[in-house]
Amino acid sequence: MIEISGLQKSFGKLQVLHDINLELKSSSCIALIGPNGCGKTTLIKSILGMVIPQNGDIKISGKSIIYQHKYRELIGYMPQIGRYPGNLSIGQLIKMVRDLRPARNEYDEELIDAFRLSDIIDKKMSTLSGGTTQKVSAVLAFLFDPPILILDEPTAGLDPVSSEALKVKISKEVEKGKLVVITSHILSELDDLVTSIIFMNEGRIAFNKTVSELLQDTQEEKISRAIVTILTNQQQV
């Protein structure tokens, strides 16, 4: 679905991405993890066309996306911190994003119900708490039933109930054959969700393994333990 080859990006003198090569296939939930400042968000933003790489290419369904815009119809993006025009209500914002994207027959409004947003649909965006704003971001990402979902720290600000609802939704979408890319710092919550893990460090891909491979290699039962094991082993080497 997404092919990344030889991707390089630097901000001034700081090289953020060093020659990234990746292939992300549909029907999988990929966790992109790594320490702060390792280039996760830059990689995601390159896929979205928000950051323009100096070198290399990103292809979605075989077509290069550099300087293109049409391909974004295929992507639902949930930013880490969503800030929206404060004067709009939740309902108006959803309507606006609908208006800006090509029209569809059906919209996936499951999350609006799951998060109980209908009760506060007329509330202004500027009055919402961080968690509620995050819920709106999630609704917008899933609304168009896109084949690719990119979620940047999706559950960081959510309460346990909503966080669970979102996770259920994510696994449902993966089962439908979608590609879901999640970045997260909270390793424990990834356990029952992801199918493979990409660990980035200092702009390079440290490893890219499926969950079963990872657990086998490290003889651990939980992803979080397995990653810690790998990291401590690497440090010893």
Partner: peptide, 16 residues
């Protein structure tokens, strides 16, 4: 102040 709003728009299928 609209920087995040611009980000939202840029991540949609719209020309810059």
């Amino acid at each position: 102040n609209a920087s995040e709003f611009i980000e939202l728009l840029v991540s949609q299928p719209l020309k810059r």
